[in-house]
């Protein structure tokens, strides 16, 4: 019995540790004050209005959506292709190859950012949407690879062999069997890619121009300039969005489980 209590307490503390910063910032999204501090004088939605009507914030949200969508499409396509390639048993150094694909996860973002800026400058892609999308894709691909590789590993190879023997060409096997079975993994990979792009600040600082300010980047600079509660409102949007994304992942996982 004491063990049970200890476990529950520990779990509680861990959860508090993880969400305390969120709990600290969220109420401030609804403050009527012009500075980001407690106590809250009265409740108001003025900072959400600011977010949606002030030019800088509106543009930032718009940019985040463009760049997030572009990153999601590109990273999902590349990551899925990579995962399919990594299935090939005849591939040399398959283990090392997989590690290589996951490298952007562990390389410090600052290092990547510097390299990316130099590289993109060489192609004249700094200060462009394409440049930012490429940069974000580099850090988003590993999430897609991990997720899709997991889904592909769950497919019985014999199912694909059976489809071939029943008269399906390799392209048809991919379209009718492999892709549908891997789809939950592809979807959750796409969601993670979008979330990664939304959240990315460091690379954006290096490669984006003033026209590609994303929401995260805008929050970052507005903290430096003036600590306005608009940041809290933006954070609230982020969290709401993340919860939504989380729900999508959970639902797609349960669909996947149902199919098994």
């Amino acid at each position: 019995m004491p063990m049970k209590v200890a476990k529950a307490t520990f779990a509680m503390l861990t959860i508090i540790f993880l969400v305390a910063p969120l709990i600290a910032i969220l109420p401030l999204a609804f403050t009527s004050s012009v500075i980001l501090t407690y106590p809250i004088p009265s409740w108001s939605l003025r900072w959400f209005e600011e977010l949606f009507f002030a030019d800088a914030w509106r543009r930032a949200i718009f940019n985040s959506l463009i760049i997030g969508t572009g990153t999601t499409l590109l990273a999902t396509a590349l990551g899925t292709a990579a995962s399919l390639g990594l299935r090939n048993r005849l591939l040399f150094f398959r283990g090392s190859m997989r590690t290589l694909f996951l490298l952007p996860m562990v390389v410090p973002a600052v290092v990547l950012g510097v390299g990316m800026q130099v590289l993109l400058a060489g192609f004249g892609l700094t200060n462009s949407y394409i440049g930012v999308i490429i940069a974000h894709t580099v850090v988003a691909v590993p999430f897609v690879v991990v997720s899709v590789t997991g889904a592909l590993a769950g497919i019985d190879e014999r199912v694909e062999l059976a489809a071939q023997s029943l008269g399906a060409s390799p392209a048809t096997v991919f379209r009718r069997i492999t892709l549908p079975l891997a789809m939950p993994g592809v979807l959750s990979g796409a969601v993670l890619a979008f979330a990664t792009s939304l959240d990315e600040v460091v690379l954006t600082l290096f490669v984006a121009g003033p026209n590609q300010r994303t929401l995260a980047r805008q929050m970052f600079s507005s903290i430096r300039e003036n600590i306005s509660p608009a940041i809290a409102a933006a954070a609230f949007l982020f969290i709401a969005g993340t919860v939504l994304i989380g729900l999508v992942v959970v639902v797609s996982r349960s669909i996947m489980a149902e199919r098994r």
């Binding site: 019985d156 014999r158 008269g167």
Partner: peptide, 14 residues
């Protein structure tokens, strides 16, 4: 044009 039956059945789960 050969029908194959596997021990693991290999039905399409979806």
């Amino acid at each position: 044009d050969m029908g194959v039956v596997f021990q693991s059945y290999a039905l399409f789960p979806h």
